[in-house]
């Protein structure tokens, strides 16, 4: 590897997008954030295929899976016109070591069916982050080998990072404590 960072690629593409508002990449709507990183919008059904195609293209490492609950922040929040805003969003952070750039995949997840296919079979490293999203947001990942709570105790009720989970209203729950919940 040379020590020259790649530059320009994302910048050029960002300029292009102004002229051509709807660019599709592997069937996903492409856009760029303020720092010039590529963002793709897809739905739960075509997520696995998209991430597989991206992996074949060089985005071989899944860095993190991050949930967001948009309950108290409705509106477009940077979504393209064709993407319908749902309550939850799962963001996948990918990196290409060869091209030295980052990419985010944003998936809208409705509250009524908070289910996303698991990427563990493709990226075994997704196991812990997906469990974290499940634990803190209550989003289910199908075909995950170990869909259990990871940070909170097993018998905890609720998902703390949801916006309707209040701060400081619930006394600290200790596992196995005799007090009623």
């Amino acid at each position: 590897m040379s020590s020259e960072p790649t530059e320009g690629g994302a910048e050029d593409a960002r300029e292009e997008i102004h002229e051509q508002p709807q660019v599709l990449r592997h069937g996903a709507i492409q856009s760029f954030d303020a720092s010039g990183n590529e963002v793709l919008f897809t739905d739960a059904a075509s997520l696995t295929k998209l991430v597989q195609a991206l992996a074949d293209e060089g985005f071989g490492m899944l860095l993190d899976v991050c949930g967001v609950d948009y309950l108290t922040y409705p509106g477009s929040r940077g979504l393209p016109a064709d993407v319908e805003a749902e309550r939850f969003e799962v963001t996948y952070l990918l990196i290409s070591h060869v091209e030295r750039r980052r990419l985010r995949v944003r998936v809208q997840v409705p509250e009524s069916a908070a289910v996303v296919p698991s990427l563990v079979s493709l990226h075994p490293g997704a196991e812990n982050p997906e469990r974290e999203v499940f634990d803190l947001f209550g989003i289910d990942f199908t075909d995950h080998p170990d869909m259990t709570r990871i940070l909170m105790p097993d018998d905890w009720s609720g998902h703390p990072l949801r916006k309707d989970f209040a701060v400081g209203r619930i006394p600290v729950q200790f596992k196995g404590a005799p007090a009623p919940r």
Partner: peptide, 29 residues
């Protein structure tokens, strides 16, 4: 390792969502 910070801002003075990608969390796998 890679320590990342993911922030979603709704235009207010507090982050709407703040997530830290802790390298140890992933490395433990």
């Amino acid at each position: 390792g890679e320590l990342g910070c993911f922030i979603v801002s709704d235009g207010s003075s507090k982050p709407y969502r703040m997530h830290i990608r802790g390298p140890s969390f992933i490395n433990l796998q």
